Amino acid sequence: MATVGTAPVNPSAPPTPPAQRRASPAETHLPPVQAHSTTLIGSVQRAMRLLEAVAAREYGAPAKQLAREVGLALPTAYHLLRTLTHEGYLRREKGLFFLGEAAERLSGAAAQQKRRSMVNEALAQWRDSIGVPVYYAVYREGEIEVRSVADSPACPAVAEWADFRETAHAHAIGQCLLSQLDEEARRDHLDRYPVQPITPYTVRDEQTLLRRLEGLGRMEPVIERQEYALGTVCAAIPLTVGATAAAVAISLPCRQADRLLPAARRLQAEAGRLLGTHALSISI
């Protein structure tokens, strides 16, 4: 028997579907959510759209304009804009919103990643076309940094058996970078990392090294034979853009020493073309 105020239940009747929430006018502007996107977080998507809208406005934009462009209710837009401002992704000046320091750091990091990716792709391309392992290094804050190496089982790189930072005098990369420094910076480096032989072929003293560096022709490949690793010959090409000293280098086993200079010349030509198109930035 049914209770008072309750309709009788018919067991054979299909269940009544739950009431559907009516979308707000602002939500009708948003793109439809795909069936496979059930794990996406709508508030994050809306915040990203607000950031994109602000980034597109060089001279800033007020909350009402941003809400209208993104298709958000104004209270929702205000809430997201305040949160993004609090976290440093936006800043507000005289009622207008601009990108903040946190967003600019993200942009800078993304640009840096893109440059690094371009450098890695270039090195891999040169490795495959020339048939040698290719190295990329810079001199930054008083230290030699090998930033990227492109090698393969057929073209293995030289194993770093002695710290590259401490043995600049003994390898082509280090000599090439030292040759690009001014006298004060060069002597500072050698004071911290004195010349010492690590193979029977390594330059024996600082004065001999300095004379060698001073005798290098501008933009000439730096050649080194077994001074860092026995059984290996290397060549490095200077790359100087602004105040940054950089180099690309190759290595070969001694039995292929006759290939070294032609391969270095080819690398120099290809690197020059890439730098000439501004497709490669060395500031990574």
Rank of each mutant, 00 (worst) to 15 (best):
L210P: 00
A243C: 10
C176F: 00
A73H: 05
V146Y: 06
V158Q: 09
V158L: 15
P25S: 03
I250P: 01
T6A: 13
L90A: 02
S107Y: 14
P14R: 12
A19C: 10
E143K: 12
A2M: 07
I223L: 15
A269G: 09
A162K: 15
L239F: 02
Y78A: 11
E224F: 01
S43A: 04
L123Q: 02
A257G: 03
L40F: 01
E270R: 15
R46K: 09
T76H: 15
G95T: 05
E166F: 05
M1T: 10
Y59C: 06
P253T: 11
L190I: 03
M48A: 06
H189Y: 13
R147Q: 06
D205E: 08
Y135F: 09
L80Y: 12
L181D: 02
G142V: 01
E52W: 07
K64C: 04
A47P: 04
R165Y: 10
E145N: 06
Y135P: 00
D205P: 01
T38F: 06
S251Y: 01
E160N: 13
A235W: 04
Q180F: 07
F97P: 00
T39V: 08
S129M: 10
E214N: 09
R46D: 06
D163E: 08
G100H: 00
L181W: 14
E141W: 11
L213Y: 14
V158G: 02
A109T: 07
I284S: 03
I250R: 03
A103I: 04
H29S: 10
T232Y: 02
A170C: 13
D163N: 09
L123I: 08
Y59L: 09
A124I: 07
A13R: 12
R21Y: 14
L210K: 08
E27A: 08
A243M: 10
S24K: 12
E160D: 10
K94M: 12
E93A: 10
T199A: 06
L275F: 11
S148P: 00
A172K: 01
S179P: 01
Q65L: 11
Y193Q: 05
T85N: 04
R186D: 01
L190C: 04
R140D: 14
G131P: 15
T39F: 04
H169R: 07
M219L: 14
G174Q: 01
